[in-house]
Amino acid sequence: MSAPSSTDSVTEAVTEAGTNAPDRGHDHGENEGHGHVEVDGVELSAELVEGASVASRDVAEYALWLGDDSLVLAQHLGWWISRAPELEEDIALGNIALDLIGHARSLLHYAGAESNRTEDDLAYWRTEPEFRSAHLFEQPNGDFAHTIARQFIAANYLFELYSRLAGSADATLAAIAAKAVKEVDYHRDHAAQWVLRLALGTEESRSRMICGLGDLWPFLDELFVDEPVIDRLEGVAVRPSSLRGPVEEAMAPVLREAELDEPRGFICSGGGRRGDHSENLGPLLAEMQVLARAHPGASW
């Protein structure tokens, strides 16, 4: 039995924050506004690498690849909030989406400097062929097993990618990657746990996991395709083809423990890095961009 005194200071602080909103509201600058926010995974100002050098056109192009992958995946995952199988997953998938939006913001911010565009100019005002996301990230949520299969491949790919990009000769990319790799390490673990639970849980969950993995596997190959721009970014970008071995090796033990065979079947020819997208991207962008585009020039 404890006296309620310990709550008093908090109560006062809360009352103060609640009633003083207008004073704080005046000062709603990008950097100040949410620096103190106590929400897991949102350190908005820290995500933006300020004062960084301007990326060259090629580096900006590469940053778009990575930024668009994260943005599109986050956009899908955001749908799950209030629809997940249990509350803990609403929170977990929300956390992952938040991390990914953070990565996307940093990367798009960096990519945009070259053409004097903001992260929002890039997210909301580019057309579909101007996006550079790979098809894997564009695939719909499907059922929970499909979402987990997409997460499993994506997180393993991103982890191997960012681990290496942290050593990039480009200091901004290296800094973004060094922060992101810790977060996608958690995403990787989250996905692996669910692959095991679903594959080894019930008969139904196993058949759904096998189906989900089979439906997403065709989009793995595109992640390892080198485009001409990569040749001009030696030491800056991570060569996609160099990631095939590490990513497959990282997934193999989980698949083995889950008693799942690597799916063999279709391989999607991809093309996202050149602006050739799956049919899913159009509707996704239409939804994401609808409000911003209804109010050109407005600020939010």
């Binding site: 926010v37 897991d40 949102v42 997210a123 994401m288």
Partner: peptide
């Protein structure tokens, strides 16, 4: 969440709804 008009607003809204689950 899917239609938030800027990425900053999207992140904040997502964090807020996630808080509510918490």
């Amino acid at each position: 969440i899917t239609r938030a008009p800027s990425l900053k607003r999207k992140a904040i809204l997502l964090a807020k709804v996630q808080d509510e689950a918490g």
